[in-house]
């Protein structure tokens, strides 16, 4: 039974990776905490819901439409709202993203109502047997998506010319600008890419559970736990952090009861931060490490 809980937690962790990877990417490159991350996730879920309702597409296939829209939203938010505020410091950006979160929450309620919605697909109601344990198919899909997202971003950041520009802008924006890198453009594109990654995470949340206008903060908190544990700004850290949180949650719930789940997860987080304040994978704050 214990082994089964490990398997369940491992795949659940994949879902947590998909919701956190956008947050860690933004932090790694721009050194800013996006408090509207939860609303990007839920906004993507609403978009997927709208597309599936009107076009009759499978929610995962709806990403073909949702992803470009989310990229444009992310890019526009960074260039129009956040970029002018960068020079005012981290606190201003923090407050700005918090404000964005509140605006988005209200807009979701006005447009979509207050009821809990869910994305429906046949695979959300089926399971796959892995080593004798039945795991929700959607968790397996989420795990595969998580690995693809982390590996894909790692390759983009280390192998592509654009990735090198991103890393340069992340390490030293002034030096990067002096060699001709358009740092605001890089920031805009990265914010757009983070929104795209969140589109995947948000759609998977909508498929796995339900979502409503006020669901964002809950997922923001979980994303934080994942990236703080793994090391803020680290893609591989997000992967490890997500899986660890999934496993701890499942094992905790099975041994001491689900009512103690958050207590133990946060106690573990505090313990790790005491032993290794930079998180498991964080050396310095930087991407692709």
């Amino acid at each position: 039974m214990f082994f089964y809980h490990l398997i369940d937690g491992f795949f659940l962790g994949g879902l947590y990776v998909t919701i956190a990877v956008g947050l860690t990417l933004v932090f790694g490159v721009m050194k800013m905490v996006n408090l509207a991350q939860g609303e990007f996730l839920i906004g993507a879920a609403y978009l997927a819901y709208t597309v599936t309702t009107h076009v009759n597409l499978d929610p995962l296939l709806s990403l073909i439409i949702v992803v470009p829209i989310m990229f444009v939203i992310g890019y526009a938010v960074q260039r129009v709202i956040l970029n002018p505020l960068i020079k005012r410091g981290q606190e201003t950006l923090l407050v700005a993203t918090f404000g964005l979160a509140l605006i988005a929450e209200t807009a979701f309620a006005l447009v979509f109502g207050n009821n809990t919605l869910a994305l429906n697909a046949p695979y959300t109601l089926t399971g796959i047997t892995i080593f004798g344990d039945t795991v929700r198919t959607i968790y397996v899909i989420a795990f595969v998506a998580a690995v693809l997202m982390v590996v894909g971003m790692y390759l983009i950041l280390t192998r592509l010319r654009f990735g090198k520009a991103v890393r340069a802008a992340a390490e030293d924006p002034a030096a990067a600008a002096s060699v001709g890198i358009d740092v605001p453009l890089v920031y805009g594109v990265i914010f757009g890419v983070a929104a795209v990654l969140s589109a995947v995470g948000g759609t998977l949340i909508g498929l796995s559970y339900g979502f409503g206008p006020t669901s964002g903060p809950e997922w923001l908190l979980r994303s934080f736990v994942v990236i703080v544990l793994g090391g803020m700004g680290s893609l591989w850290g997000a992967l490890l952090g997500g899986i660890l949180i999934g496993v701890i949650e499942e094992v905790t719930a099975s041994i001491v009861g689900a009512q103690f789940r958050d207590l133990i997860v946060f106690a573990f987080l505090v313990l790790i931060l005491i032993i290794r304040p930079q998180g498991l994978f964080g050396k310095k704050v930087s991407v692709a490490k």
Binding site: H5, D8, Y209, E218, A253, A258, Q259, R261, D262
Partner: peptide, 12 residues
């Protein structure tokens, strides 16, 4: 099973 409000995962 006893759990806090807002629990999303019930696999175990």
């Amino acid at each position: 099973a006893v759990f806090p409000v807002g629990t999303t995962n019930f696999s175990s």
